[in-house]
Amino acid sequence: MNNAFEKMLPNFSFEIFPPKRTGSLESVYGTVDALASLHPDLISVTYGAGGSNRDNTIEIASTIQNRYMLPAVAHLTCVGSSLEQTDALLAELKEKGVRTILALRGDRRADADFGDGYFKHAAELVAHIKKNYDFRVLGACYPEKHPEAPSLEADIAHLKEKVDAGVDALITQLFLNNDDFYRFRDLAQKAGINVPIIAGIMPITQASMLDKVVSLCGASVPPAVRRFVDAYGHNAEAIREAGIAYAASQIVDLLASGVEGIHIYSMNKAGVTRQIAQNIHGILYSLRVKKS
């Protein structure tokens, strides 16, 4: 296990995203203010589809790293980017003190002439970063397989290539059934993937989120989730409470199973993330004391 991650596990981290339109970042920094008081091990900043909002990603990650003095992770996609563009972004991140990259292929845009970019797969981007820079590199993985993969086994074989290229740790896409994560983790270990696997959790706090979750990453929906969405989806406060409770129960079970980290997809909803952290505060504290 990579020592840089071993010393901080169980890792408790969050993901935020830049505003969709250019303009003030104050709302994002308000979210960071609220999350920083939870003392996360990492805060990651997403990259828009095809690399949109990349300037905001760099600015926000740099601010988290330098103003808030928290480890920041900048997402970096390779779709649609030339080698020169990628190197320029990496040089800027290095200059601004961001030391960790989440290397992704990224989603292809519908633009007819957008192009695939210099790197075709995340594994190629990882190898380039590790050969030419001194970044810590994270990779993404799908507990229920990437939507484009023919099978989970085939997806894990490609994931092994990415890990072999130099990934230091993996963060899963969201999942709603912990058994899917455990099955994936077992298969990954059997395939020789021995880096930490951090579990990605997204609280379902609005009925509309469920269809988005399924369409974005193909996550299956357990009957328990479908039931609380159907029962409480008409009531904003009720479904928020139910989604927080379900996410907290997922995390409790994952931590009890020895998961190597929890990454909450906050959707910039600091209040939801804070409530989850409060619900499991004693568990997190006891695990961190044990680790130290």
Rank of each mutant, 00 (worst) to 15 (best):
A169C: 08
F181S: 08
K130M: 03
S151P: 06
K131H: 14
T172A: 07
I129W: 00
P143A: 13
G166A: 11
L174Q: 01
E144C: 13
L152M: 14
S151H: 07
A157D: 13
P150V: 15
F135N: 01
L152V: 01
L152Q: 15
E161G: 12
E144D: 11
F135I: 03
Y133T: 02
L159V: 04
A154N: 13
A157P: 00
L170C: 12
I156M: 10
P143T: 02
D179G: 06
A157Y: 02
D164H: 08
Q173Y: 04
P150Y: 05
K162I: 00
F181A: 10
Y182S: 10
D180H: 11
V137W: 03
T172V: 07
L170Y: 07
Y142S: 02
V167M: 06
E148Q: 15
A149W: 05
F175M: 03
N132T: 11
L170W: 04
A165M: 03
I171S: 00
A157F: 08
D168L: 05
K131W: 01
C141T: 05
L152S: 09
A149S: 15
L152H: 07
A149F: 09
A169Y: 00
K130S: 05
V163Q: 10
F181M: 12
A140E: 08
F175K: 00
V137C: 10
R183D: 15
K160L: 06
E148G: 13
I171L: 00
E148V: 13
A157K: 13
D179T: 14
K160Y: 04
S151K: 02
V167D: 01
D179F: 12
F181I: 11
P147M: 14
A140R: 08
L176F: 14
G139M: 02
G166D: 08
Y142G: 08
R136K: 13
Q173M: 03
E161T: 15
G139D: 10
F181Y: 13
N177F: 06
F175D: 02
A140Q: 07
E153S: 15
K130L: 05
L138N: 01
